[in-house]
Amino acid sequence: MAKDISPAALDAVRRPIETANGLPNAHYIDPDVFEVEKEAVLLSSWAGLAVASDVPEIGDAKPMAFLGIPLLLVRDRSNTVRVFQNICRHRGMILVSEPRKIEGAIRCPYHSWCYGTDGRLVTTPHVGGPGFNTHEAIVKEDLGLIEVRSHIWFDTVFVNIDGKAAPFDKVHADLIARWADFDQPMYHGGADSRFTLPVKTNWKLAVENYCESYHLPWVHPGLNSYSRLEDHYNITERGKYSGQGTRAYSQLRGDDGATFPDFPAIDAKFIAGGEYITVYPNVLLGVQRDQTFVIILEPKGHAATDEHVHLYYATPDTDAALRGKNCALWRGVFEEDVFVVEGMQKGRHAPGFDGGRFSPAMDGPTHCFHDWVAGKIGAHLAAR
């Protein structure tokens, strides 16, 4: 066992914040530790894969990968978004190689086995020999696409790859209740309201940076000019989620003074402010009176992450110019964080760095995340 994932090292992370260390270097720079983390943290939890708006219409299909696993996001004929392994049950061929509309069936390009958008195996041409499309050994009911356990909340498609996690709505009941005001239609802004930032950092550093407001005065001076450090508060739900909130949210205005429509019937605290929470392990969410956002962190390895950003509004017909201005604003804010998370990633190559210390007043949300990761890894190793 690597020294950095020994029980003693993990226990040091899980101490009270006043004396705790952060996760050691190996959790960011060692490919072997990343392999352990994949099983212990990412495959065993409800991880974010995509947004349901990636497949907006019936029959839409989008091939994806999560930690190298080929997956297929599909909106089936009953308008249900589902996730399947993107492989044919015959010889494991990739079924769909680029986003497209499934007009009839999902056809394997190798031997033309065909599947419904609900995953059923429907045809097996010549499987019993030329002209014979059935065989007693091939039971179609047993050979449908392998479905991945999934749950949609906040338009986010969460997947539990190992299939062993408690139900999503049980795991995250507290957060669902906290944000019940936003349990209403929200509309993806479309092509001008999504972007991806490739970042040379471990995915956890993106979470850690997002969780806290401590860095605002120095990294986000523009944002801090109207949402000051002293306007923020910590959100710490140990073992579930963490983040920050602000009591000073300023609506974006167009050149004509127009704003986005508000979400109806939301609590006064969301009229004046906003909240920004990480749903462990890899989904970053934000809510404000007139817009929300979803960021899916896609780990591309131990030192690379793609940040997929999606912006949402209370109505489907928001002004295009204002959407474009809003997207540029948020992109600018998130790009300001890139040098920080990439700098911390480089810093993790310094021998002797013990994971650092936490500000008891300012780093509570980040320590909650470290504690959760260390707990997941410790439980995984203990079960081996």
Results as ranks from 00 to 15, higher is better:
341 V>A: 09
357 R>D: 08
40 A>Y: 11
224 N>E: 05
217 P>T: 05
174 D>F: 03
287 V>H: 06
317 D>N: 13
246 T>M: 01
312 Y>I: 03
293 F>D: 01
82 R>K: 15
361 A>G: 05
263 F>Y: 00
285 L>G: 11
379 A>T: 07
293 F>C: 01
358 F>I: 10
3 K>T: 14
297 L>A: 04
26 A>R: 08
275 E>F: 00
248 A>R: 05
202 N>R: 05
269 K>P: 00
31 P>M: 13
320 A>D: 10
98 E>A: 12
172 H>L: 14
49 L>E: 06
375 G>S: 08
192 D>W: 06
283 V>C: 13
20 A>H: 11
98 E>Q: 13
130 P>Y: 02
188 H>F: 15
377 I>N: 08
153 W>R: 08
325 K>H: 05
5 I>G: 10
275 E>S: 02
46 W>E: 06
374 A>G: 08
93 M>L: 13
42 L>F: 15
347 G>R: 06
242 S>C: 06
317 D>T: 03
303 A>P: 00
343 G>E: 07
323 R>S: 09
241 Y>P: 05
49 L>P: 07
298 E>Y: 00
282 N>I: 02
291 Q>L: 05
353 F>N: 15
65 A>M: 12
356 G>N: 09
94 I>P: 12
195 F>R: 14
116 G>C: 09
34 F>I: 01
340 V>G: 07
330 W>C: 06
211 C>S: 03
190 G>E: 09
373 V>K: 08
114 C>M: 07
201 T>L: 09
328 A>S: 10
330 W>Q: 13
72 L>T: 09
163 G>P: 02
90 H>V: 00
197 L>D: 07
145 L>F: 10
120 R>K: 14
116 G>N: 14
97 S>T: 08
383 A>K: 15
102 I>Q: 08
281 P>H: 10
172 H>A: 04
235 I>W: 04
117 T>F: 07
107 R>T: 09
336 E>W: 06
256 D>P: 02
71 L>Y: 04
235 I>E: 12
173 A>G: 00
174 D>A: 10
358 F>H: 09
190 G>L: 02
324 G>D: 13
137 A>C: 06
50 A>E: 14
140 K>I: 03
247 R>W: 00
130 P>L: 03
8 A>V: 12
82 R>P: 07
240 K>Q: 14
203 W>E: 03
368 C>I: 12
167 P>K: 02
212 E>G: 06
52 A>R: 14
132 F>K: 05
329 L>K: 13
350 A>R: 15
92 G>W: 04
226 Y>K: 00
215 H>Y: 08
340 V>Q: 03
114 C>F: 00
74 V>N: 06
